[in-house]
């Protein structure tokens, strides 16, 4: 049984923003975090705003300069989008390795971005795409880079009267390599122990774009900026890759939990960053 709560079911975005502005509830998207948290006593809210009827938040558009995903789009809808594997290979891989059939059909990208979990699987791939999120309140919208959106464990820059309405990014450079690896206890329906995404582009035999994002190894998913700086303008040799992976690992602050020890997370971060960087370097053209 869920604890008793009140629920409003707006049909349009302005209606939802009005209820949100009045302080009358927290957004409810797929409920795959919210309902287990309510049942487990972690979620104390007793008023919710159901976003499931707001179709204007449920879309994927591929434009020449911008790919946009509405916040209410489900993980399964991203997986089924025929252009996503080409447009954002690491994101496609992340949604393909996400939960099981039923949860993928309910869980939304907005919920994944807003729950603030360090293991949220769409975040590393979106960070290496340099994605931005649109935050909307009754009085208007602002856009915020995803890199900088997370402040601390389950803390984001989003204000309580704002809805995350979409996430968008510019298409990756032709010839770039965009990879994601989810290390978990099982291949299916398991929480990420160590997650790594990289984006590498090459120009004239040198690395022109280097982005690395790590999940489940710190209070938030984060970009390993110091490691990225070491790679830019360089030819990626095994030695350089090793040192960059070390720099990325040094930026992590993993904990022991029931899925893994902190030490295992550190070792696998180092190994996976090495592996993905060399794969991406070979793949990029």
């Amino acid at each position: 049984m869920l604890p008793a709560f009140e629920l409003s079911q707006p049909k349009t975005l302005p209606e939802a923003l009005k209820v949100l502005a009045a302080g009358r509830g927290l957004p409810l998207a797929g409920g795959t975090v919210l309902f287990p948290d309510l049942r487990g006593g972690k979620e104390k809210g007793r008023e919710f705003i159901d976003l499931s009827g707001i179709d204007e938040l449920r879309y994927i558009t591929h434009e020449a300069k911008r790919i946009t995903v509405g916040a209410r789009t489900t993980i399964a809808e991203i997986l089924r989008d025929p252009a996503m594997a080409g447009a954002a290979p690491a994101l496609h891989k992340a949604v393909d390795n996400f939960a099981g059939t039923m949860v993928r059909n309910a869980a939304t990208v907005g919920g994944n971005l807003c729950c603030g979990s360090p293991s949220a699987d769409t975040v590393p791939a979106l960070l290496t795409l340099d994605a931005e999120v649109e935050l909307t309140r009754a009085s208007g919208s602002r856009t915020v880079p995803l890199d900088g959106y997370y402040l601390d464990y389950k803390k984001t820059v989003k204000k309580p009267d704002e809805l995350l309405t979409s996430v968008f990014w510019a298409p990756a450079e032709p010839g770039s390599a965009h990879l994601f690896f989810k290390l978990a206890r099982r291949k299916g329906d398991a929480v990420t122990v160590t997650g790594v995404s990289v984006m590498i582009a090459k120009t004239d035999g040198k690395c022109s774009t280097a982005r690395i994002a790590l999940s489940s190894v710190a209070p938030t998913v984060f970009r390993a900026h110091s490691a990225e700086e070491m790679l830019k303008g360089q030819k990626l040799t095994p030695d350089l890759i090793e040192r960059a992976a070390q720099a990325a690992t040094d930026q992590s602050s993993p904990i022991d939990d029931n899925r893994s020890s902190a030490n295992y997370r550190r070792l696998t971060t180092q190994a996976l960053v090495c592996r993905l960087l060399s794969q991406a370097w070979h793949q990029a053209s």
Partner: peptide, 27 residues
């Protein structure tokens, strides 16, 4: 489990499999 882990409660909702423990009757 009533938290999305076991799938025992799965039903098709308009041809899409969902965990009915993570769906509200109102929805």
């Amino acid at each position: 489990c009533e938290k999305g882990d076991c799938g025992a409660c799965a039903v098709l909702l308009d041809d899409m499999a969902v965990d009915s423990c993570l769906t509200l009757a109102w929805q």
